[in-house]
Simulated assay, not measured.
Amino acid sequence: MRKMTYLAVLNNSSNPDDVYTVTFPDVPGTVSEGKGIDQALKNGAEALGLMLYDMDDLPEASDIDEVREANREAVVRLVVVDLEETCKTVREIG
Rank of each mutant, 00 (worst) to 15 (best):
V80R: 11
S32I: 09
V9F: 08
T89I: 11
E60R: 06
R77E: 15
V31M: 12
V79P: 07
E69K: 13
D17N: 09
L48N: 07
L83I: 07
D17H: 12
Y20L: 08
S32D: 05
A74T: 06
V9E: 02
G94S: 03
S62P: 04
Y6P: 05
P28V: 00
G34D: 05
D63H: 09
P59F: 04
G94H: 10
I37Q: 07
R91M: 04
L50S: 01
P59W: 06
D56I: 08
C87A: 15
S14V: 12
T23I: 14
D57H: 09
R72L: 13
G36K: 09
E84W: 04
K3C: 04
D26L: 01
V19G: 00
A70G: 10
K35Y: 15
L7N: 02
E66P: 00
I64Q: 07
L10I: 06
A70C: 06
A47I: 00
D57E: 15
V31L: 14
V75M: 08
F24D: 08
C87I: 02
E66G: 02
D65K: 12
A45L: 04
D17F: 14
R2P: 02
Y20V: 04
N12F: 00
E73M: 12
E92G: 10
L41P: 05
K3F: 05
N71D: 13
A70S: 14
D26Y: 02
M51A: 14
D82Y: 08
E85G: 01
M55H: 02
M4F: 11
A70T: 02
G94E: 12
L48Y: 06
G36T: 07
E60P: 00
D26E: 13
N12Q: 13
R77G: 00
E33Q: 15
V9Y: 03
I37L: 15
E92K: 14
D63T: 04
T89Y: 13
Y6Q: 04
I93G: 00
T23H: 03
T23F: 02
A61R: 15
P16R: 12
K3I: 11
E69L: 10
L78K: 08
P28W: 01
A8Q: 05
E46P: 00
D56K: 14
D26Q: 09
L50I: 11
N12M: 10
R77A: 14
E69P: 00
A74N: 05
K42S: 14
L52Q: 02
